[in-house]
Write a protein that binds this DNA or RNA. Sequence first.
DNA 1: CTTCTGACA
DNA 2: TGTCAGTA
Length: 130
Amino acid sequence: MSEKELRRSRSVFPIGTVMKLTDLTARQIRYYEEQDLIHPLRNEGNRRMYSLNDIDVLLEIKDYLSDGINMAGIKRIYELQENKEKAREQEVNKVMTDDDVRKILQDEFLAVSGLSAKTANSFLNQNRIG
DNA sequence: CTTCTGACA
DNA sequence: TGTCAGTA
């Protein structure tokens, strides 16, 4: 992991700061954590401490929400990203071609996003494997 | 004063 | 999701 990635992973912001930076309520921020979309650490006093990465995700969630995607859909999107990373990590022992993976991801995404094929393709292209 | 968990008039 | 309670 690079130094830059480590910095963005440092949990240093209390929820109050995150609220101001994202315009989300504490209730919403904690709810998204329950949905495993963000993983803030706890300090000595059991207070949640958020990283720059957590804040980025929160901002992305806001965008997806404003695009009309529900929580289930958003969770699916992040699950797809995890699968994409795993696929990349296991590229050595891959049994499927990138196009096979791409087709599977697209079908899953279309099934839950409620977005048009055009928009879905745009999303997939931005996160293309390979 | 800020944040946390649990609960719902 | 808002909000109130009782803490830490």
